[in-house]
Design a binder for these strands. Structure first.
Lengths: 141, 141
DNA sequence: ACATAAATGCAACTAAGTTGCAACAATTTT
DNA sequence: AAAATTGTTGCAACTTAGTTGCATTTATGT
């Protein structure tokens, strides 16, 4: 299983001890290459961990730059794996997020960069979030 | 008070009866031209209304196209007045939202339109949300 | 002013997220 | 490899957010 080595590397690189819950939750992210809601993770991990552990694990992963959050229109929190460039306390997820209204899967479009937005005088930009709603390629036809 | 007439017009135009809570909440939005969180409204309305009434009023306003929601990075729900073009069940808030990290006020930048985003083949867009984080003109200096 | 339809307040409930602490498991040290 | 240490987990209790049903009250058309 290559995926297990990947998980251990990812945790070690971020100075996190390798525990059952962390490994399992990382596995979920690595398996399906989309975003997961907190509820998804609780369900898919098979009630094997406490709610609190899931909260704390996700929080830790966000802090370490392993995953990032995605704001959605209905204000539920989504999490997705970061690419390698992200480090502790410094996310670089400047890509567009896509949410399919049919299958409600959320995908990070890594190749689509966020366009520069010209603001009126006096405004200073630090970060831009772009979320595209629509229908994904699997749900059309 | 011109603002009172404005409120009554707005409610009548949307076939809503003119009640104390609706008038008061609309007043809050008209007074400060920025976005409000649910908690703000409860505080500023001075505990004069029931929590449930605030929930239901905001919901009604969103349905009627009087206000729209703004997704934020920390996943709290913000509400802001729509411009006149919005009608029942059909929002046209295709403008950029700006959130100031200092005063945490949120402003609708009506003049800045959302740029078109080119997606990979197969993806179909229905709506694009853009939220810019930064420092507003009042907080710089 | 009255009838009717709608809005509000209350109470109770579900869901979401947080905190402190004791028990436990993963590292580190020897 | 076992002990010591540090960090992680699970539990319980709690806070906050949001929902639902129903009785009461309020707004509006006639």
């Amino acid at each position: 299983m290559v995926i297990n080595q990947q998980i251990q590397q990812l945790l070690k690189r971020n100075q996190l001890s390798i525990t059952g819950s962390r490994s399992k939750i990382l596995e979920l992210f690595l398996q399906q290459n989309g975003a997961l809601a907190h509820a998804d993770i609780e369900k898919k991990s098979g009630a094997s961990f406490d709610r609190v552990t899931v909260y704390r694990t996700l929080q830790t992963f966000v802090e370490k730059g392993i995953i990032h959050t995605i704001p959605t229109a209905d204000n539920s929190i989504l999490y997705a794996l970061c690419k390698d460039e992200c480090t502790e306390g410094h996310h670089h997820d400047h890509h567009v997020h896509f949410i399919c209204s049919k299958c409600s899967s959320t995908i990070c479009l890594e190749d689509i960069t966020v366009p520069e937005i010209k603001l009126p005088g006096g405004y200073q930009t630090t970060q831009v979030e772009v979320v595209v709603n629509g229908v994904c390629k699997d749900c059309r036809g």
